[in-house]
Design a binder for these strands. Structure first.
Lengths: 337, 337
DNA sequence: TTGTAGGCGTTATCAC
DNA sequence: GTGATAACGCCTACAA
């Protein structure tokens, strides 16, 4: 087996040229003779040369590394974004360092610091709510960052996402227009989560605007999972004054809500309409299928990558990309009974 | 704002000590005086010093970087593994570079090469089937690799996973014991995918062992998605000689199969039993709920991380971790009609 | 306990 | 067009 540590020096020696020339060949620098270039390429292949990224980065201050800090990969909505982001970056030979914060801002700060140590050239975050220290650190090291799943950027960041508050209002409007008056909401955990918070705010604001009392509305927070959604639904029903429509801040929560209703013999949407959020694959698996907002996860990943790979001047024309979210109407919602 | 490029040199100057001493402090080297140590720490914080990972890596040949190449993040089963892997590695201050191959071995090779350039200290792959060149490259650079979702390692790698062929056989046995004789299978795309292939092999082998004709069994391959599962189910039914039980190589396929049956007015499990694979969250969302094999995705991620962070000597005691997979029996399977 | 100095593999700036 | 040579920021013998 060929030796493990073949350096550019070895390649140059084998090709009978200088280190500098070999380097030029590896970097597609045009100022090198065709004949020499060929010898270098051949030598590199023969020796199994692989450039040393650390050395290259150290010398050129170009790491071709991008970092992402997301709450978890275990939610399809984030996984989708990451998949698109990585795919797009990979096309441009940029590697993605992925880390998860588990919705913990302190952990996020730590991860961001680590990413900066690694020399990432940009960072992708989720949401606009972060520790001031986190954004300061990024600024201090001139590392641009894009905030996804939100339309309003904080700090010097750029947002690639959608309007969560607007979505909350749209949800309320949709249900109100179906004639519902006794509404409820199963939200995500709003602590340290501006997206979850904004959806609640928007939903309540619209109720108030239409003359209903937001304070009277049953509201539960639950982690994004089917079982938590079912439990929250149970709680809301146990509370009395049964709602005729429930807005769930994620499809997993909605799936749990429907599941509980079905188990409890409550007809969906006959007795209760259930509205979801995300439009995951599971939205078409529930019975009835889920009416839900389609979140452009893939687009966000793709656009974040585009922003990152754009030149600084190009970036100026890209400030704040707000994506539309459309409602996918299926069977889980209907007119108020 | 403080300057972006603060080097250890600056810290040392500010603390009034030598570069070496400052370096010792940053690396928790004990041989440094308490008073000086404090000055260095204070200076580092004051200046907002962040070590340069590239320089550190170049000098110490320790990158604390691990790479993973998976088919896609868009399948919950891989996302789960990655989530656990990253979490565990993160605890040990190791960063994860994630890339996706889209089931393409050539792309995988390219990604692995890129990871080696980055100086990753280990690589996590999926499955045991890879280009010889890929594994050679890893060996050549002394980069250990672990193969997940499989129990048999190839090359010099280590497997952290389960026996796909055994699972296929277990699936057949389970259905046969329920009295089914006309079986069918919806497999994943087997090209370049040993896990998918092994499940088919095992399933067919067991049929043959029990005196049935494997060649006569309806078999469809489909990408892992609900719609593809539904389409495959349609095809199988259209083929005539309707089976009484269908083994699907993933829960998404199974969900699609059930969905199609329901739409076609075929009772599950009354007329047809459907058996899944993965035990994703969606397994409890279908109607009826899915009987399926539980794949230890989280465990694989965790164990892969443990293997990677183990010392070379410890690793010798860890060769080949085969995980058991258990069957979660729910409502989608029943006795043959 | 602390300082000095050499070098990790590469790229960039000079000369030639 | 090509070749020396000096950094890049850090770690680590070796000295003191």
């Amino acid at each position: 087996m060929r030796d493990a540590k073949v350096t550019l020096h070895d390649v140059a020696k084998q090709a009978g040229c200088s280190l500098a020339t070999a380097s030029r060949v590896m970097n597609d620098n045009q100022t090198v003779g065709g004949e020499v270039r060929e010898r270098v390429v051949k030598a590199a292949i023969a020796l199994g040369y692989v450039p040393n990224g650390s050395a290259r980065a150290l010398r050129s201050t170009q790491t071709r590394l991008v970092g992402a800090v997301i709450p978890t990969v275990d939610h399809a909505i984030y996984a989708s974004m990451i998949n698109a982001l990585q795919g797009r970056l990979g096309e441009r030979k940029i590697s993605l360092i992925l880390s998860t914060s588990m919705y913990d801002p302190d952990l996020e700060l730590q991860q961001v610091r680590q990413l900066i140590e690694r020399g990432v050239e940009a960072v992708v975050l989720v949401g606009a709510q972060h520790k001031a220290q986190t954004l300061d650190l990024l600024d201090q090291h001139r590392v641009p960052y894009v905030q996804t799943y939100t339309a309003r950027a904080s700090g010097t960041g750029v947002a690639v996402g959608f309007d969560n508050e607007g979505a909350g209002r749209a949800a309320a409007r949709f249900l109100l227009e179906l004639g519902h008056r006794r509404l409820a909401m199963i939200a995500g955990i709003t602590q340290d989560n501006d997206r979850a918070k904004d959806r609640v705010t928007g939903f309540l604001a619209e109720l108030a605007a239409q003359g209903l009392d937001p304070a009277a509305m049953p509201l539960r927070e639950a982690p994004y999972s089917v079982v938590a959604g079912a439990a929250a639904m149970r709680d809301i029903l146990a509370q009395g004054g049964r709602p005729t429509a429930v807005f769930c801040a994620s499809d997993t929560l909605a799936a749990g809500a429907i599941k509980h209703c079905t188990a409890a013999g409550i007809d969906v949407p006959g007795a209760i309409s259930v509205l979801g959020f995300d439009n995951l694959e599971i939205a078409e698996l529930t019975t009835p299928e889920l009416t839900t907002f389609e979140v452009p996860a893939r687009d966000m990943g793709r656009l974040a990558a585009d922003y990152i790979t754009a030149s600084p001047t190009q970036r100026l024309h890209m400030r704040g990309t707000e994506l539309p979210i459309r409602l996918a109407v299926r069977g889980s919602t209907g007119a108020a009974p």
